[in-house]
Design a protein around this nucleic acid. Structure first.
Lengths: 205, 205
DNA sequence: ACTTTTGTTAACCATTTGGTTAAATCGTAT
DNA sequence: ATACGATTTAACCAAATGGTTAACAAAAGT
């Protein structure tokens, strides 16, 4: 479990290890000793760098949130036609999440554990996703008559669901459908194009 | 926290309390003392009825799985035209989950924690979902030319994603979009019709 | 009536776990 | 070399937590 490249600072090694453990086990299930072991260091050293479990968790959680949410904003707020926006969202977002497939479930899970904390800590002003513009854009297209009369909220939910859920339910899908790691990756790769096609087919007139 | 109707047996009271606590906190986060308190009993009595935490958890988890999975089977295996099947799946499944909105995340989460255990314990023969028939049916429709050339796997994923994910990400959606409990319920009620319409629009020729 | 079984409790125990301490070691500037 | 702060460790501590024990009460047989 230990790999200590001399190029990395101890703090980086700890953060990597903590991320690995927290993301898989969650705040409640993670053990400080496990993180120390994973980092190849002493437990006391862990507390030397990060005063306590909560502090360490906060860093990891914020890091994870920062990896997932701002991306959404940038795409939704972009100045782009609706269909292109949907395409680039799927392309980029699936790309990001394929790099860390366990992040979405981790974040969703911890939000569920304490939604208020999340609201305050993560979205205190800056990176708060603002889907209003995207919803507005959908409504515009409806009025222009370029797409069917769809409820923007449901369209947004559909887009996010189809993009994110397969990663959240990954082990379930794999065990149930007998899908290997490679096959899963391939399927997700396909979904970058499949989802936009599916959505556009559903809403275009 | 305590409500002890004399009609209920102690075991039932314990199971209800355990479900409440486990579903919200997860196996790792749940405390036996919390469950005892919630049930209004002594911690020792908890161990009298269920030898240990693992055993109690197993009962709750199996119960939760039994509440979620067999439903899927019955609908997917039914003898019904594809479009109707999609409609009745959304209608019934959203109905079920609205009754216990936290179950899906709980189950998904614990499956993630140990996929092998899940495979053995929950799907040992009987209630194992078998989407093969549903996938086959889609392929038939494609060959008949009644729907577009869609990849059945992706269609299945899309259906499940759109149906289940909003419940999994419920607090996130609520906090982000400023949706009240009532509004959420209303939106989910709409989705019973919205999702089938969306899917059918996407795939019908 | 009384004996046995079942249900329930308070007090206790052992282990796990987050966190601390004081001493040792390493790097670097003087 | 040596002084000194930053880093690292082994040993320790206190609280939390899962689980047990022994005594007691309530039902159920007899």
């Amino acid at each position: 479990m230990v790999k200590k490249k001399k190029e990395q600072t101890t703090e980086q090694v700890i953060l990597e290890a903590a991320k690995k453990v927290f993301v898989v086990k969650g705040m409640a299930g993670a053990r400080m000793q496990d993180i120390a072991d994973e980092a190849g260091i002493n437990k006391a050293l862990l507390h030397y760098y990060f005063r306590n479990k909560e502090k360490l968790f906060e860093v990891i959680f914020m890091q994870a949130a920062a990896e997932l949410f701002p991306k959404i904003n940038k795409i939704f707020d972009a100045d782009q036609p609706l269909f292109e926006k949907i395409e680039s969202f799927c392309e980029e977002y699936i790309g990001v999440v394929m790099g860390s497939p366990y992040l979405p479930l981790f974040v969703i899970n911890e939000i569920n554990q304490d939604p208020e904390y999340f609201l305050k800590k993560v979205w205190s002003g800056k990176s708060k996703p603002n889907p209003a513009k995207f919803l507005e854009q959908i409504e515009q297209e409806v009025k222009k008559g370029t797409i069917k009369r769809v409820n923007p909220l449901h369209l947004l939910m559909n887009l996010l669901s189809m993009t994110i859920f397969p990663f959240v339910a990954k082990p379930m899908f794999q065990k149930n459908l007998g899908i290997s790691e490679a096959q899963f990756r391939e399927a997700m790769e396909q979904r970058k194009k499949e989802i936009p096609k599916f959505i556009i087919d559903a809403i275009k007139k």
